[in-house]
């Protein structure tokens, strides 16, 4: 469904954001003290597109996720998402707009069950009214049952073990299962944009590929989910991304298909170092 009512935001040229462009980042800047973590970074993402965000350590990848999701307030620039200006919005508002993310270092609630953790991600679709939760227990029960069925189905598409243990605490599970739960948590609310921050961290090569296959399968079923993926494993980026953005020292140094950026001299210098300097 398209949102017709909301006034379309205008891009830098004064033109309405076209529906094909889901996300438009313009001149984003963020400094911490004297360090420029992001400096005039611009890129955009089409609907249904997968964008690989790469760069050496400390190049500003995770910072751009944190600015995008409202954890950091940008010092300059604009973020247009799905026809609305979300620059400087709170993390909660960004989530409600339809952006869900995973974290580089797994951020699950280890004491809580698998179901609980997935339901954290479903916040926007659950009824949080005090009356509903405390007094309309029959209606609440129905909502739990349908949410449980949905979460179990989603978990099953990643691992049957997860689906069979929805009420077991997450803390007892191995890394790969936790990563899957984190992705289920991000996908359950059917976001328009999924931000994956290094899904391969702490996993083997095969596990990562399996995970990416599962994500792509769910994406297929949900239809048209766009993804931005931060990844160091270039095999993953080559396989899944439609196009790539390369950051270095907080600046965008290259953009294009994986083949383009892989042969880019600046990119090679950024990764391998150079005597000439920039």
């Amino acid at each position: 469904m398209m949102q017709v009512e909301t006034a379309l935001a205008l891009d830098t040229l004064g033109l309405p954001i076209t529906p094909e462009r889901l996300l438009d980042i313009q001149g984003l800047a963020k400094s911490f003290g004297g360090v420029r973590a992001l400096n005039d970074v611009s890129f955009s993402l089409g609907r249904g597109e997968i964008l690989g965000l790469i760069g050496p350590n400390g190049s500003g990848k995770t910072t751009s996720f944190n600015v995008l999701t409202g954890l950091y307030r940008p010092d300059g620039g604009k973020i247009l998402f799905d026809g609305a200006d979300i620059t400087g919005n709170s993390p909660q508002a960004v989530y409600r707009a339809g952006i869900a993310r995973t974290f580089q270092r797994s951020r699950l609630c280890l004491e809580l069950s698998i179901f609980d953790n997935i339901m954290v991600g479903n916040h926007a679709r659950l009824n949080h009214g005090l009356m509903f939760n405390l007094f309309q227990r029959k209606a609440f029960r129905l909502e739990v049952e349908s949410a449980l069925a949905e979460a179990t189905e989603l978990a099953a598409s990643f691992s049957p073990n997860l689906a069979a243990a929805m009420f077991e605490p997450v803390g007892a599970l191995p890394m790969i299962e936790r990563r899957r739960i984190e992705i289920c948590r991000a996908l359950i609310s059917r976001p328009k944009l999924l931000l994956l921050d290094e899904p391969s961290a702490g996993m083997t090569h095969d596990e990562t590929h399996q995970l990416m296959d599962d994500i792509l399968a769910v994406r297929e079923r949900q239809g048209g989910l766009s993804i931005i993926i931060i990844e160091h494993e270039m095999g993953v980026i080559e396989r899944v991304s439609d196009h790539c953005v390369v950051l270095n020292y907080g600046e965008k140094i290259a953009e294009g298909s994986y083949q383009d950026i892989a042969s880019d001299r600046l990119v090679q210098e950024a990764y391998l170092g150079s005597e000439v300097g920039r």
Partner: peptide
């Protein structure tokens, strides 16, 4: 559930609308 999530991880909670 939201109360638990806030106790265990404020950042993740905020990113999921809590």
């Amino acid at each position: 559930l939201s109360l638990d999530a806030v106790r265990l991880d404020e950042t993740a909670s905020a990113c999921y609308g809590i």
